[in-house]
Computed example of a mutant assay.
Amino acid sequence: MERGSSDEVVVVGSGIAGLTTAVLLAESGRRTRVWAREPAGRTASAVAGALWWPYRIGPEPLVGAWALDTLGVYEELADRPGETGVRLVDGVHRGARLDELGAWAGRVPGLRAVADGLAARLPLIDMPVHLAWLRERFARAGGTVEEREVTDLAAVPAAVVVNCTGLGARSLVPDPAVRPVRGQLVVVENPGITTWYTSVDHVPDASTYFFPQPGGLLLGGTAEEDAWSREPDPATAAEIVARCAAVRPEIAGARVLAHRVGLRPVRDAVRLERRSLPDGRTLVHNYGHGGAGVTVAWGCAREAALLASAAA
């Protein structure tokens, strides 16, 4: 096994959880490397719709704190949208109610009840831009990213190993409690829509939402449990467009630009904890963020970085 320095940290995974955690560690002065099987642009994070909102993630009391912490960061980053990919955008969660949400909802600025749901001005993140910005920020702090496949966390040569592998943790840890919930999106030319929209659907594996991003209007979506296929399904895509067009008819004629599929790493509860490797070195887990990895990224990264630093 390679030998790593006694103060080195290796973060395994280059999605939003891995890069955000790595940034905080590097900026705290720790020598930090990111090891990833694939570049950030090919992770599940890269295809996320990326509206800040807790979705398919638990436990709720902890999620609220992580999400609010992250919201504060995004509100600052939204001052530089071209650089960070973060904008504050108005929209409506149709069918949502304040009394059905956790205590965190009362601390979201401007979140209010309207006739058909809840309205708010929330962070909407252009993920390709944001992931590139995180990687550049990590590099400025002295961090390095390496494309390396990890098959054994105990074999990673570092004093502290941080596991941010998302769905990969299912086989790597191994942890069968983390499983995929498949999400399919359609990207169309934006016919002039400037607000986001989501709807609470009664069909468990389907939803209706659209998010205006700089590269087009993102239409969704699906939530197919234990589905592993990364190939877009044409029939599903047509259903997504039809559901969104029922809300905004101008979407029906919009030219399709791309199809995207991502596998959300869902777990009953986020795994964020410190463990010891067989030789006494430290392993920190930070995975299982479901459909809200973007929403809790900074809150979870702060806690993971503290766990890693406490092991120094």
Rank of each mutant, 00 (worst) to 15 (best):
L124F: 04
A227N: 12
G280F: 06
G91R: 10
L167R: 03
T295R: 10
R264Y: 02
C164I: 00
A177T: 15
H285T: 09
R3D: 12
R107Y: 00
A44R: 09
E146G: 00
S6K: 11
Q213S: 11
R179F: 15
A36T: 15
A227V: 15
V108E: 05
E149I: 03
P265Q: 10
G293K: 09
L88E: 07
S207D: 15
A46P: 10
R31L: 05
R107P: 00
A132W: 06
V261G: 05
A269K: 03
P214I: 14
R56G: 15
R87P: 02
V181S: 14
T295Q: 10
L51Y: 08
A65F: 04
S171D: 14
V150Y: 05
V200Y: 10
V241D: 04
E146D: 13
G91L: 06
I240L: 02
G64W: 06
A258V: 05
E76A: 13
E60D: 15
F138M: 01
D79T: 14
L263C: 07
H130F: 06
V23E: 01
D226K: 09
A139R: 15
E273M: 01
V156I: 08
A119G: 14
D116K: 07
A237V: 11
L131K: 09
I240V: 12
E38M: 12
G262L: 12
R230E: 13
G58K: 01
L217R: 08
R94N: 13
A245D: 11
A103C: 01
T236S: 10
L68H: 07
G64C: 12
G29V: 00
P232M: 04
W133A: 13
G293V: 12
T222W: 11
A105Y: 07
R170T: 06
V294M: 13
N286H: 04
V156T: 10
E100N: 12
P204N: 06
C164Y: 03
R243I: 03
G29N: 01
R267V: 11
I125Y: 05
A254D: 09
V47W: 14
R148M: 09
F138Y: 02
Y209R: 08
R87T: 13
V114S: 05
G262W: 06
E303F: 03
G58R: 01
E231C: 02
A48L: 08
G91P: 05
Y55D: 15
L24R: 01
R121Q: 11
G280M: 06
A120K: 11
G183S: 06
P81S: 14
D233A: 05
